[in-house]
Write a protein that binds this DNA or RNA. Sequence first.
DNA 1: GACACCATTGTAAGCGCTTACAAGAGGGTG
DNA 2: CACCCTCTTGTAAGCGCTTACAATGGTGTC
Lengths: 342, 342
Amino acid sequence: MTEVQRATIQDVALLAGLSICTVSRALRGLPNVSESAQGRVAGAAAKLGYVASAAASRLAGGSTRSVAIITPTATTWFFAHAVEAAEQVFADSGLDTMLISLRNDPSVHSRIFGDLPGLAQKVDGVLLINVELTDGQIQALAASSLAVASVGMYDVPWDNVGIDNVLAARMATGHLLDLGHWDLAILCDREKGSRSVLTASDRLRGFTEALTDHDLTVDADLVVNAPSTIDGGRQAMTELIENRRMPTAVFAGCDETAFGAMAALREHGLSAPKNMSIVGLDEHPMSDFLGLSTVQQPVADQGAFGANLLVDRLHKPDSAPEPANHLLPTSLLARSSSRRRR
Amino acid sequence: MTEVQRATIQDVALLAGLSICTVSRALRGLPNVSESAQGRVAGAAAKLGYVASAAASRLAGGSTRSVAIITPTATTWFFAHAVEAAEQVFADSGLDTMLISLRNDPSVHSRIFGDLPGLAQKVDGVLLINVELTDGQIQALAASSLAVASVGMYDVPWDNVGIDNVLAARMATGHLLDLGHWDLAILCDREKGSRSVLTASDRLRGFTEALTDHDLTVDADLVVNAPSTIDGGRQAMTELIENRRMPTAVFAGCDETAFGAMAALREHGLSAPKNMSIVGLDEHPMSDFLGLSTVQQPVADQGAFGANLLVDRLHKPDSAPEPANHLLPTSLLARSSSRRRR
DNA sequence: GACACCATTGTAAGCGCTTACAAGAGGGTG
DNA sequence: CACCCTCTTGTAAGCGCTTACAATGGTGTC
C-alpha cells in the first residue's frame, strides 16, 4: 500500500518499456504519442502509484500549478466566504491554493509585497481580496511575472471584480434619506494609504454623494472609523454615543459593523429603530433575524468570479485583453432596523 | 528594480568569489563557514536580490517548507478563526500554508485522502481541523511521510488539541437541568462515518450522560441533526417545531446553530427563553448581544496550539514523544436565553 | 527504387539547488 | 620536523523532471 520508495518517471518508463521522455509526454497529454504508448504508460503509472514530483516538474518546467489568495483577514464573514469560493474554483482547476492572511499587520504586508520574486517562486498568480496597496506596489506587481486578479479593488491594472460601492452606499444612504432622516452618521473602515484602491472609501463617497444630492453636508463628527467586525462596530457606536453626538440614522459599512453598533446601542439602553435607524451592507445570514435593513451583495460569487479571472489569465498569459473591471449587482433589503423619522 | 533574469546561486558564488557549495552553506546558516565568507555571501546575495529557487531546493533537499490546513469548511466562525490563527503560526515559522477546504464534498475528501503521496509531494505536514476520517485513512496518514497534527479530533495516532467536548456538553446540558428542565433536545452535527473521531459525537455523549445522571433518558425524536451553521440551526429547529415536538429546552451544538434556532423560533412566533430555553457552545461575538447562554471555548488558541504541535513535529521528526492529546478549558456563560422552568 | 516527409520515440543537456566526499591550510604534539 | 587534527572550502554527483534535437521507421511521390 504505502510505497516506501516513491516511484519516479524512470520506473514508469522501465515498466512501460519506453523512454522517460515519451512517458513524460504521455503523462501530460502532449500530441505525437501513439495510442499504444499512451495506454502502456497509463497502465504502468497506475500500477506503480506514480505521482509526478511537483518540485522536479516545477524546476524543469517553470509553472508551479498553484496560486495565492491574499486577504486582509480570513475571519470575517465576507472574507471567509470569498476565500472559500475562490479556493473551490482553484481546486477545481487543479491549482493549489496558498493562503496568505495579512492580519492587518504592516510587517506581514511588507514581507509579502517587499519580496515579490520570492512569491513568484512559489505561485504562478495571486488573487488579491481587498488588499490596500501603494502605487509602487501596484506597479511592481503588474510588472512581475505573476498573474494578478483582484476582488473589491479599484483602478488597478489587472482584472477585478466587485460591486459598485458608490452605488451600494447611495442605496443604503438614500434609503435613510427617503425615510426622512437628514442627520446621518457613517461607520466605515478607513484606508490608511494616500491613494484609494479599495472599496471602503467608495462607500464613504457614495454616502457623501447621497447627502449632497439632498443638499446636505457630511458632519465630520459623524464619520467614524470602524474596522469591519462586530467589535469594530460596537466601539464605533460607543464612540458616537459617548464622545460625539447621536444622529437619527447610521449607515454601517458592513453588516457585522451594524451588529456591533446595535449591540452598543443596547448597552446604552437604546435600540434600533427606536432611537436610531441603522442600515448595513452585506446581507449576512444573521441580518434577517436581527431585522437589519441592508444592501445585499453577492459574496461567494465575487470570490469565485475573481478566481476565474485569475485562472483565465493563467491559461492565456499572452494576447491578454485589456484588464477589465466587473461589477456585480446589489439590492436594498429594507427591514425593521430602519424606519421613518418622526 | 525588476530583475529580468533571476539571479541564481551561481551568480552569488561568482560575485562572492566562492564556490556554490560554500554559498549554499552560508545562506542556510550551516556551521563551518568563516565569518568573512559569510559576510561576502550575504553582501553578494543582497546586491543581486537573490532569492533561492523553492523548486530547486525542494528537489535537492527534500523539504517543501510548507504545510496544509485541511478543514471541512473555512466559512463558519470556528473554522475561520482556527484557520487564521494556525496560518499565523505557520507564517511566523517560515512555513507556507496551503488551504484545503473539503466543503463537505465527499469527492474532494476522497481526492485528497486518496492521494496522500500527491499531498506529501507538496507539503511536509498537515493540520487537520475536525476532519472526519475512516480508520483506513487514519492509518494511511500515520504511515505516510507527512507530519500530522489535528484540532478537535479524537483518539488519533498523532498530536491533537481540543476541548473536552463531553465535559462542555455536560456543562451546557447540566445548566439546563439545573434550571429545572428535564425535557431536552439537542441540535447537533452528526457524523456519517461508523467510527467516531470527531468532537460532534462527544457533545451528544455529554448530553446523554448529563441526562442519565439525572435518571433521564434521551428521546430520539429530540436528537436533531444540524449542520453547524445558522441555516442548519434554523432548519433543525423548524423540523423540531413542525414535525416532531417542542421540548422546554435545547442544547445547540454551536452558537451559530443556536442563532439559527432562535431565528426559527421567531419565525414561528416563539422566542427564547419564553417558550424554550437555549444554550449554545462557542461564545461567538454575537452571543452576548443576543443573550445566548453558552459554553465558551478558545478558538484561536486551538488553531494556534494545533499549528505549534505540527511545527514541533516538523522540527524534530525523530525521537518523537508519544502523540499527546491536549485539552483546553471551557466555561459556562449563563445569559438570558435560558431560564428556570416554571 | 530513391527521395522527401511525417509521426513517433529516444538521447542528452540542463533547471538550481543539496550533500557526500575530497582537498587544502594551519596548528598542536611527541 | 614528521604526523595527525580540525576547520574551511571546493568538486562533483545527483534530485526527477522538461525539452531541444536527433534518430528511426513507415508512407507517399515521381
